[in-house]
Simulated scan of single mutants.
Amino acid sequence: MAKIGIYGSSFDPVTNVHLWTASTVAHRCKLDKVIFLPCSNKRKEKTMKTSDEHRWNMLQLAIAKNDKFLADDYEMKRDAWEVYTVFTMQHFKKLYPDDDVYFIMGADLLVDIADGKWKHDEELISQNKFIVMARDEIDMVKTISRSPLLRNHDDGSRFHLIDKGLAMEISSSYIRDEFSKGGEPRYLLPDACYDYIQEHGLYREK
């Protein structure tokens, strides 16, 4: 039985922090695979700065040399009404029926679930396992404790909390801002992605 982590983000663009985080989570949680899942551009709360094609191409370049890393365009292909994490996890659990499948997320998303901001939250939490990464001094244990939904499904294996050494400040938005203002973010993302962005003139001010 393999252990597989589902790592969703906009990856607009994919950064070295994304790769370092995925590698660290795989190492600490003994994952056999990490599946990078670019989110749909149809989500109302997300505004992509470049096309699905460019995001997908850069992600493929970024993970090409790591055998543990895969990319999947499942959410990219969904209609907006289908793009909920509970449906995504159902898909991957059917795809890997003999394996343990975990949803990888930041502690900020755990807070959102505790605050009732996620659709189908009862179904999502009751049916899945989660790897939760520290964010901005959020107390993950207190977040679980204050939520009836989270604490009543915390059976000791539901939430794998990683609370040391995963807080880094460089984001995709920071890199986009650097490109748009003529900055030099070369070493914040994979060389192949940097070259791709330069070649296609991405993230430049119009």
Rank of each mutant, 00 (worst) to 15 (best):
H120E: 11
H120N: 10
H120T: 11
H120G: 07
H120R: 07
D121R: 02
D121Q: 04
D121M: 10
D121N: 05
D121V: 02
E122F: 09
E123R: 03
E123L: 03
E123V: 01
L124P: 03
L124Y: 04
L124K: 00
L124G: 07
I125S: 02
I125F: 01
I125T: 13
I125L: 05
S126E: 14
S126F: 04
S126K: 15
S126Q: 15
S126L: 11
S126I: 07
S126R: 15
Q127A: 13
N128M: 14
N128K: 11
N128V: 12
N128S: 14
N128F: 10
N128G: 14
N128L: 14
N128P: 12
K129H: 08
K129Q: 14
K129L: 08
K129V: 02
K129N: 15
F130V: 14
F130P: 15
F130K: 14
F130Q: 15
F130Y: 09
F130N: 13
F130E: 15
I131K: 15
I131W: 12
I131Q: 14
I131H: 13
V132M: 12
V132R: 04
V132H: 10
V132Q: 03
V132W: 05
M133C: 12
M133I: 10
M133V: 07
M133F: 05
M133Q: 04
A134C: 07
A134D: 12
A134G: 08
A134I: 06
A134S: 11
R135K: 01
R135I: 06
R135N: 01
D136S: 10
D136C: 07
D136E: 08
D136P: 04
D136G: 06
E137N: 05
E137K: 00
E137Y: 07
E137D: 01
E137I: 00
E137L: 01
E137V: 00
E137G: 00
E137P: 02
I138E: 09
D139R: 02
M140I: 03
M140F: 08
M140Q: 04
M140G: 13
V141L: 09
V141R: 10
V141P: 08
V141I: 04
K142V: 04
K142R: 06
K142S: 00
K142P: 01
K142D: 02
T143F: 04
T143I: 01
I144T: 04
I144G: 07
I144P: 06
I144M: 10
I144K: 15
I144Y: 00
S145H: 01
S145Q: 07
S145V: 09
R146I: 08
R146W: 01
R146M: 10
S147E: 11
P148N: 09
P148Q: 03
P148I: 02
P148L: 03
L149K: 08
L149C: 11
L149R: 06
L149Y: 13
L150T: 07
L150R: 02
L150V: 11
R151M: 04
R151D: 08
R151F: 08
R151K: 14
N152Y: 12
N152A: 10
N152K: 10
N152G: 07
N152D: 10
H153V: 11
H153E: 06
H153M: 00
D154C: 08
D154P: 09
D154V: 12
D154L: 12
